[in-house]
Amino acid sequence: MFFRKSSSFSDNDLPSVIQACRANDSRAQRILFKQFFGYAKSICLRYTSSVEEAEDVLNEGFLKAFQHLDSYNEALPFKAWLRTILVNTAISHYRRNSRFEQQSSLESGEQVALDNDVVDQIAADEILALVQKLNPTHRTVFMMHVVDGYSLHEIAELLNHNEATVRSNYSRARQKLQQLIKQAYPFHVKSGPAASVPYHEN
């Protein structure tokens, strides 16, 4: 476990908490963990299919964060640094537990377009619940590209797969999520050309 000894710091001063964590201060580590627990868990939930799985990724991610705090540049936002650690941990978790779908051809089928006001009527947590219904491959590619901003080329490199396969799985993820939105919100969705799927980050 990463909790160890104690030193002096101010609970409300993030730089001093981080500095104490670098010295393996157990109370500082608990405070940092508590302060960013909700934020971290929301990220992990996006990449996993259950709360239990998300907590496994979260704990592993925080452990890595504490082990690599010396690499954190305090001139940059800590949240952004922690987010990168958590996303990379989620990717590693996915690679350990899933087999990537080696298919590069797109499936045909009806796509749906969203009415202009649907974004305002679907809460972020409701969309997240639908995203979690996607299979692990589609969910991971979708979250990396839409929410965390990775290019499809970068995703292919991180997952060690060719870009055509990643592009195919991203397209399928969009189609499946659009179908789920259509089923959940039939009065706000109409058939038509493919539209981008809305997502509001907390």
Rank of each mutant, 00 (worst) to 15 (best):
L45W: 09
S108L: 15
S6L: 13
Y39S: 01
R95A: 15
N73E: 00
F33P: 01
F37G: 08
A40E: 02
L58T: 05
N24L: 06
P198Y: 05
A90K: 07
R167A: 12
S10W: 06
N169G: 09
Y39G: 00
D25S: 15
L58W: 02
E154R: 10
A28W: 01
I155K: 00
A28M: 04
S26F: 09
S105G: 04
T89W: 08
V141D: 08
H68P: 01
I181L: 11
V118D: 07
K41R: 12
S104D: 12
G38L: 11
D11W: 09
A54P: 03
Q183M: 08
S50N: 03
K41L: 15
M1F: 12
N135E: 14
G38R: 06
A23E: 15
E55W: 05
A173S: 13
T140M: 12
E126K: 14
D13V: 06
E60M: 10
E55M: 08
Y39L: 02
P193M: 01
S7W: 09
A65L: 11
R174A: 07
F142R: 04
N59R: 07
V119L: 15
T165Q: 11
V147D: 06
D56P: 00
L14S: 10
M143Y: 01
C44K: 00
H161S: 06
Q19V: 10
Y150E: 01
T137M: 05
A75W: 09
Q183L: 07
S168T: 14
D117G: 12
S6I: 13
R96S: 14
K190Q: 11
N97S: 10
L159M: 14
I155T: 00
Q121P: 05
K133V: 07
I85G: 05
F187P: 00
N162F: 09
V17N: 01
A124P: 13
I122Y: 01
P15H: 00
G38P: 06
H68I: 03
L82E: 01
K190E: 13
Q175H: 14
F9Q: 04
L152D: 04
N97E: 13
Y150A: 02
K176V: 14
G109K: 10
C21K: 02
F142S: 05
K190I: 10
